[in-house]
C-alpha cells in the first residue's frame, strides 16, 4: 500500500515536472537543463563517492573526456552526436580503467589528491592541444545538435526533455544497481572494507567497477553537455567543476538518489536564485553551503538504511574506509 502511494506520488511529481517548460520562461528552463546535467554527473559520482566510498575530486576529467570525444568525432568525422553517446562513455571508461588500476588501493585523502591531479593533468593537456586534436584553449566549436528520426533537439525546451529523460533513465538504472548484488557489495565494503574482504568480496574489483561505471556515465554527460553548448573549451572542466559535483553528492546525502537530484537543485540552482545579490551572490552561496551542511550533517536527504528482517546494528556512517 505504501508502495502504491509512492508510485502515485512519483508519477504525479513527474507529470508536474514534465509540464514545467510550459510555465517557465526560457531562462529557467535552461537553468533546469543545467541542473539536469549536474544531476546526471552527481548520480555518477555518487556511485564512486557515495557507494564505493572513494574520495574522488577529479570527476571533471571523465566529463571532459566524454565531451571532447563527442566534439572531436562529431566535428572531425561527422558522426551524429547521439550515436556517439556510447563512444563517449567508452573512452571515459577506458581512461578510468587505465588511471584507476594503479591508484585504487590508495587510502582516502591520498586518492583525493591523485584524482585532483588527474583532473588537472587532463585540463592542462586539453589546453596544450594534446595530440593536436583538442584545439587548445580555444576548444572545439561547431558541434552538432542531437537529432533523432529527423527531429533536431535545438531549443532549451527540447533539451529539457532530452536531458531529463536521460536523467530519468539514469535514476532507474542506478536504483536497480543499488539493490543488486553489486550495490550491496559496494555498501558492504564502504562500511567495513576488511570485513567485506573477509567475507569473500573482491574489494579491489568492486571499487574499480564502481569507478569505471561512474566514469562511463560522466562521459555520456559530457556528450550531452557538448551537444547542448555546441562549443567546449577547457574552461568548462576545471577543478571547480569537480568541486561542484562533489559538493552536490555530499550535500544531497551521499548514497541517496533523491539526494543527488535535490543537491543538484541547490548547488546549481541557488547561485541563479542569488543573482539578486549581484556581486555578493557567491558570498551568500558559500554561507548557504556551510549552513546547509551544519543543519543537515548527513546531507539533506541521506540514504535510508536498508531494512532487513534481522535485527540490525546501527550502521556507523563514515566517508572513506
Amino acid at each position: 500500500m505504501t508502495n502504491q502511494r509512492t508510485i502515485i506520488t512519483i508519477s504525479l511529481a513527474n507529470v508536474v515536472f514534465a509540464s514545467l517548460p510550459f510555465f517557465l520562461n526560457t531562462y529557467w528552463v535552461d537553468v533546469l537543463n543545467s541542473i539536469g546535467i549536474y544531476s546526471i554527473l552527481a548520480l555518477s559520482l555518487n556511485l564512486i563517492v557515495g557507494h564505493a566510498g572513494l574520495f574522488n575530486l577529479g570527476h571533471a576529467a571523465f566529463y571532459a573526456i566524454g565531451a571532447y570525444t563527442a566534439a572531436i568525432l562529431n566535428t572531425g568525422y561527422g558522426i551524429p552526436i547521439l550515436a556517439l553517446l556510447p563512444a563517449c562513455g567508452f573512452t571515459a571508461g577506458v581512461f578510468a580503467v587505465l588511471i584507476a588500476r594503479p591508484i585504487i588501493h590508495l587510502r582516502g585523502d591520498y586518492l583525493c589528491i591523485v584524482t585532483i591531479g588527474v583532473g588537472e593533468i587532463v585540463r592542462i593537456a586539453l589546453i596544450n592541444d594534446v595530440f593536436g586534436v583538442t584545439g587548445g584553449a580555444n576548444g572545439i566549436f561547431g558541434i552538432a545538435r542531437p537529432s533523432l528520426f529527423g527531429f533536431s533537439v535545438r531549443s532549451p525546451q527540447h533539451f529539457f526533455y532530452y536531458i531529463w529523460t536521460f536523467a530519468g533513465i539514469t535514476v532507474c538504472l542506478f536504483h536497480l544497481l543499488e539493490n543488486s548484488r553489486f550495490g550491496r557489495a559496494l555498501n558492504y565494503l564502504r562500511e567495513d572494507e576488511v570485513a567485506a574482504e573477509g567475507s569473500g568480496v573482491d574489494t579491489a574489483h568492486y571499487k574499480l567497477a564502481a569507478f569505471v561505471v561512474g566514469a562511463v556515465w560522466a562521459g555520456m554527460a559530457g556528450n550531452i553537455y557538448a551537444s547542448k553548448m555546441t562549443i567546449i573549451s577547457p574552461e568548462s572542466f576545471t577543478f571547480w567543476e569537480s568541486v561542484l559535483m562533489f559538493a552536490i553528492v555530499i550535500l544531497g546525502g551521499s548514497g541517496s538518489i533523491p539526494g543527488m537530484l535535490l543537491g543538484a537543485f541547490l548547488i546549481v540552482g541557488l547561485p541563479e536564485l542569488f543573482r539578486e545579490f549581484a556581486n555578493a551572490r557567491m558570498l551568500v552561496f558559500g554561507a548557504a553551503m556551510i549552513a546547509m551542511m551544519i543543519f543537515r550533517t548527513q546531507g539533506i536527504l541521506p540514504a535510508k538504511q536498508r531494512r532487513y528482517s534481522l535485527p540490525e546494528s546501527s550502521g556507523e556512517e563514515s566517508g572513506t574506509g
Binding site: 555530499i250 551521499s254 557567491m282 558570498l283 558559500g286 554561507a287 556551510i290 550533517t297 548527513q298 566517508g319
Partner: peptide, 21 residues
C-alpha cells in the same frame, strides 16, 4: 561527530565565502 566528508563540503563553502568577502 558527522561524516568526515560533510566537513569537507563545509570547508569548501567557507572557502567560497572568504574569497568573496
Amino acid at each position: 561527530q558527522s561524516p568526515r566528508l560533510s566537513a569537507v563540503v563545509s570547508a569548501l563553502g567557507a572557502s567560497i565565502f572568504l574569497q568573496n568577502t
